[in-house]
């Protein structure tokens, strides 16, 4: 298998160095760009398998760069940010970022995010049967098995877990989930979402108060892992 190529766009030489070493020692090929202009032209010349994009670039706002990329680039873009402002992260995710990491981050976490983002981008969406973790979800029969046992779910609970399973490892914003499950106009009804996630956890999690599968990302959304 070819090594996946990752384009790192960050103006801080130290961060680029660190990313280069940790990614190369994990068998990725690394291309570096020091600003948005360079990043956009490198990517256009030779589209990488994944982009690590710093939100605070000197020549252009990260959100604008993200929008420009998303006009033609459909592979994963993971946002790196020093701003721990959830609104900012939610905005980036809404503009098409695949995931995010706030600096300082652990290398293990970075690699896990990259692996899961690349895996999702390779998987086509034509699967009718999703197997992840202890779960097996049949999208045609609309059934869910946990450890091989069928579990009884309501319609909405099923829709939720199917959405989560299709996006395994990826953070999903509240607004995105609400729009996907309940449709336009429900984006602010986070209470619905909490209640249904709570119900679903009661059925899936060993300890619903300390969940292992459906993880809350404070102020941002949920991550199924």
């Amino acid at each position: 298998m070819n090594k996946a190529e990752i384009l790192v766009i960050d103006d801080e030489p130290q961060i680029r160095k660190l990313l280069q070493i940790s990614l190369e020692s994990n068998d990725y090929r690394v291309v570096q760009a020091v600003n948005a202009r360079e990043g956009l032209s490198f990517a256009a010349l030779h589209p990488p398998d994944l982009i690590l994009l710093d939100l605070g670039l000197p020549d252009k706002s990260g959100h604008d760069v993200l929008k420009e990329f998303r006009e033609w680039y459909s592979r994963p873009i993971i946002i790196l940010s020093v701003v721990d402002d959830e609104q900012d992260i939610v905005a980036a995710l809404d503009h098409g970022a695949s995931d995010y990491l706030t600096k300082p981050f652990r290398t293990g976490e970075l690699l896990a995010r990259i692996r899961s983002a690349i895996r999702r981008s390779i998987n086509d969406n034509s699967e009718t049967n999703i197997v992840c973790r202890a779960f097996e979800i049949n999208l045609i029969a609309r059934t869910v098995k946990m450890h091989g046992q069928f579990i009884k779910l309501t319609g909405t609970e099923y829709n939720l877990i199917a959405l989560f399973a299709r996006n395994e490892g990826k953070v999903l914003t509240h607004q995105y989930i609400l729009r996907e499950i309940w449709g336009i106009g429900y984006q602010t009804e986070t209470q619905y979402l909490r209640v249904f996630v709570g119900q679903l956890r009661k059925k899936l999690e060993e300890n619903p108060n300390n969940p292992q599968y459906i993880i809350t990302e404070s102020g941002v959304g949920y991550r199924f892992q």
């Binding site: 986070t190 909490r194 108060n209 102020g219």
Partner: peptide, 12 residues
């Protein structure tokens, strides 16, 4: 930024 929160989960 007020949002519905499950305190048990937060503490864990």
């Amino acid at each position: 930024r007020l949002d519905w929160t499950d305190l048990n989960e937060l503490v864990f």
